[in-house]
Design a protein around this nucleic acid. Structure first.
Lengths: 169, 169
DNA sequence: GAACTAACGTTAGAGTCACTAACGTTTATG
DNA sequence: CATAAACGTTAGTGACTCTAACGTTAGTTC
């Protein structure tokens, strides 16, 4: 009707509108929503001086108990080179304790503290709220659908990774 | 049964398994799938010496016709500071032409060439295949659902951005 | 028509993120 | 005992998003 496909003169919204081709691409949609989600969670966690990796480590410790840094690395997907500073931050704040493993003196044993458990509960609450905000346009049923689809996609692409890079840091 | 919740000694899979808490978080699922998708498309496009921004610019030119760099910036979401090198690459390869706008000598007018249109068709094909690979675990109906949900989420969060940062580069 | 404001293309750079390489130390393997 | 492997750690790379500033050109206002 009114939206022109001609290229000669400039229709009013060819200035700002995103091409349909791009809007339909799943990859682009994904990175868009993911970027928005990242922004949301980063901002939300920054308000309590935390980062998303903090949550991953604390949750892992709570669920599986103490472990070495390499173990935590494998459980959370954080590279073991980056794990160092994450644990430094968590230890500074008193959420974990780093002690030498007497049975294997290469290892550090990381343990969650009472404060760490409290912090984990707080972060859980925050992330719940942020997830609510992110998924606010969807009905409860749709949210479940969405999470279900994402889970299947992620599982499929991480079990036997097509390319080796992403599975085991 | 076999998966222990105790923390004292180490059960076999507390070494590698990701905590349930993390696996259910929509934000984490999103960034996981998005990362996988990025890897897929980056690798796929690199095979023909292209990048995803190339596709965005070419698609925009094809759909809305020639435009200034600032216009392309607004249409694609690429910052105008980054648009420079993207257009350099596209011009080097002969996919676009950069000419001074005689009516407004601040502007460059970017035009897609015949080769550019051919390249766009090629990239479209490649991206279709990659999208197929990404969504392979989903049925056609589920793919539509997935894209629909993503679209609604993205639209909701970009129309009136809760935080100003992400909408208009 | 002069002075101010705003948009344009461009360069440089900050900050974050996923990821690799290499090191010294310690434990397992042959 | 020698070699290889896993650990924690440091440093650094490359990509990506985003900000700041500059010179140039165009509208706007008096």
């Amino acid at each position: 009707m009114s939206s022109g496909a001609d290229a000669a003169h400039m229709p009013p919204d060819s200035e700002t509108k995103t091409p349909e081709r791009l809007r339909r691409r799943a990859g682009r949609l994904l990175s868009g929503v993911s970027a928005q989600s990242d922004r949301l969670t980063n901002d939300g966690l920054a308000r309590v001086n935390a980062r998303k990796w903090h949550y991953a480590v604390l949750a892992s410790l709570q669920e599986f108990g103490p472990g070495s840094q390499a173990t935590l690395s494998r459980r959370t997907g954080i590279y073991r080179s980056d794990m160092v500073s994450v644990l430094n931050e968590l230890a500074e704040r008193g959420f974990v304790e780093r002690t030498l493993d007497p049975d294997d003196r290469r290892r550090n044993v990381i343990t969650i503290t009472a404060q760490g458990r409290r912090q984990l509960r707080r972060l859980d609450k925050i992330l719940d709220d942020l997830q609510d905000e992110l998924l606010s346009p969807l009905s409860p049923t749709e949210r479940d659908q969405f999470v279900g689809l994402l889970t299947r996609l992620l599982d499929h692409h991480t079990q036997r990774a097509p390319h080796p890079p992403a599975s085991r840091p």
